[in-house]
Design a protein around this nucleic acid. Structure first.
Lengths: 340, 340
DNA sequence: TTGTAAGCGTTATCAT
DNA sequence: ATGATAACGCTTACAA
């Protein structure tokens, strides 16, 4: 049996409360007793029992990371790993812990939600890229559980951190425009996700800013998966774009494969820009020009925002939008101006 | 305030204990009261308070996943994500939760260990690919915390799940031998990890089985990272192998880049086999022949073994070794027999 | 500055 | 079959 407060108290010859005060550095303890208590603590290797503590403080120092059902298959995409890494690191520095919840059982969603969220184990949660109709966010709101969303959300009262998807996409497409491309297609993300919508919006903004027409046949909806990239590119080909902005690197890989299938070369026959800058991007042949987003940092900031929320509830909504960055590699090339 | 047992009891007109019995399906409750209690539970939306429950049962239904310091940078490698996914899914089906701990602060290792492991929040842990001198395993043993290691461990008493690294490596090298290669190099994993050692052992076994000499200059130690693959291949080149078994796909990517640098083509000039079968492998040019390991399954089995351990302590050591599988793509080619 | 005692929401023992 | 009641290990008034 691990030692308890009581035992430490015995050894130090004080009461339980005094030991408790020492551990929580309450001010009103005589320096000498404080000393004696610490010694007793060392002596028996005392470690506070977090569960018991939580029962009275109503705080567990555990935050949850909720990854909704729809995206668990994307786990091979380094987005979640990086987000997790950032989040865990922030937790470590603040002496919090991270509980990982995949909501991957569509039928039992609500049940799982109840079990996980209302068990009292988490002080708050981070919700990773929920689609707009995901039921988790409304539930959280209803239950008054502190949370921050990774990826912005139209609802006014929701705290989030996000990257500037609109601007990132816009930079990507403007890069293509500057290279002389005029027929620029896009394979979007799922349009029920804000990030999917935002990247499409950036695409539109870039075209509009350069007085290029927006043609619906140059826009096909994808799903952030490789297979979606393949299918998207196949459909897009009939609209014969000279360049394509693909809303994720994983889809860009699919697009590349589809092009190879058709014996089209990148960038000679068609230019490609991705989004994410996952390690794969630089490993592709040709190395992919793409938009880098600070995912790990986003994970860390999400945790910090959440802890702030937990410790200072009630303040106005918090939002952070991080910048993105265009990384130019070798998948784009100038479009020669044709005289025809 | 969420409802407590007491309130449910009030509504149902019974005592706290009876409600508790109903919730834990104890047999000795009259069907009719049971019914009334369930109704009361629905009525007020009661949810057991896990923390309070844990205090008395000494069980949290939380398992920890410990990822030691040395590997956190490898988080972009899909190994951990997949392991996590498998583990989380298994947790879900058994109504457990998963607490993720990266031990990424080398100085505070022991402190973090104490805080996380001895806080009483976890019923047991899974230790992911610790190096042989990692201090976590001895600590766990000392503290009597149930755990299973992902990756085998020489210590007799340690429970683990692993893949058959020896055999996987052996298959890979035998594939090269069958293609006619005789000078086969290898870039190993870190040799302070059992998986690194085992894959090297497989390499040696394959050569030995075919009466090929083992030349030390054909063996260079890597680190499971891309940069290690680059460096390894550069060194290996002076020994002029016609084929190389690289102990991880990520390193194989590095090796490929190093070869490109030297204007050597794969597989025309040199054949390459990797290990892991991460998504990158099939995306490379040429698609990489590699050894597939069931990582996700390993994660799920690790959790299941751990739960078994928690629920039936004391039984003999448990071990699972899963088979690996050679996936032939396009990075290897027959070695023409030269008459010189 | 320190100690006493109540209470957090459960489960478990022991009566009834 | 059900109800008191005592833990579980801690924090926190309140008293001294």
């Amino acid at each position: 049996m691990p030692p308890t407060l009581e035992e430490v108290a015995q050894i130090a010859g004080v009461s339980r409360s005094t030991v408790s005060r020492v551990i929580n550095n309450h001010p009103n303890v005589r320096a000498e007793t404080r000393e004696r208590v610490w010694q007793a603590i060392q002596e028996c290797g005392y470690q506070p029992h977090a569960v018991a503590r939580s029962l009275v403080t109503n705080r567990t120092r555990i935050v949850g990371m909720v990854i909704p059902e729809t995206v668990t298959t994307l786990f091979t995409d380094p987005f979640f790993p990086l987000l997790l890494q950032g989040a865990t690191e922030a937790c470590n520095t603040h002496h919090y812990q991270l509980l990982l919840s995949l909501f991957n059982d569509p039928t039992g969603q609500e049940k799982t939600y109840q079990r996980v969220m209302r068990s009292g184990y988490v002080d708050g949660v981070i919700v990773a890229s929920a689609s707009l109709q995901d039921p988790v966010i409304p539930s959280l709101l209803r239950d008054g559980i502190p949370f921050v969303s990774v990826g912005r959300h139209p609802d006014e009262q929701i705290n989030y951190v996000d990257v500037d998807n609109v601007n990132g996409a816009r930079m990507a497409v403007e890069h293509l425009i500057q290279l002389g491309h005029r027929r620029i297609g896009t394979i979007t993300g799922p349009l029920d996700m804000i990030s999917g919508q935002d990247r499409l919006r950036g695409y539109r903004q870039a075209l509009a800013a350069h007085d290029l027409p927006i043609e619906e046949e140059l826009i096909v909806e994808g799903d952030f998966r490789e297979s979606g990239g393949v299918a998207g590119m196949q459909r897009l080909l009939s609209a014969s774009p000279s360049a394509v902005f693909v809303a994720s690197d994983i889809m860009a890989l699919g697009a590349l494969k589809a092009l190879r299938q058709e014996n089209l070369r990148v960038p000679q026959d068609i230019s490609l820009v991705g989004f994410d800058d996952i390690p794969l991007a630089s490993a592709l042949e040709p190395p992919l020009t793409t938009v880098r987003q600070p995912v790990r940092r986003m994970g860390a900031l999400a945790v910090e925002m959440l802890l702030d929320l937990i410790e200072h509830p009630g303040a106005g909504p918090r939002r952070i939008v991080l910048p993105t960055q265009l990384v130019i590699r070798k998948s784009c090339r100038e479009k020669e101006v044709m005289s025809s």
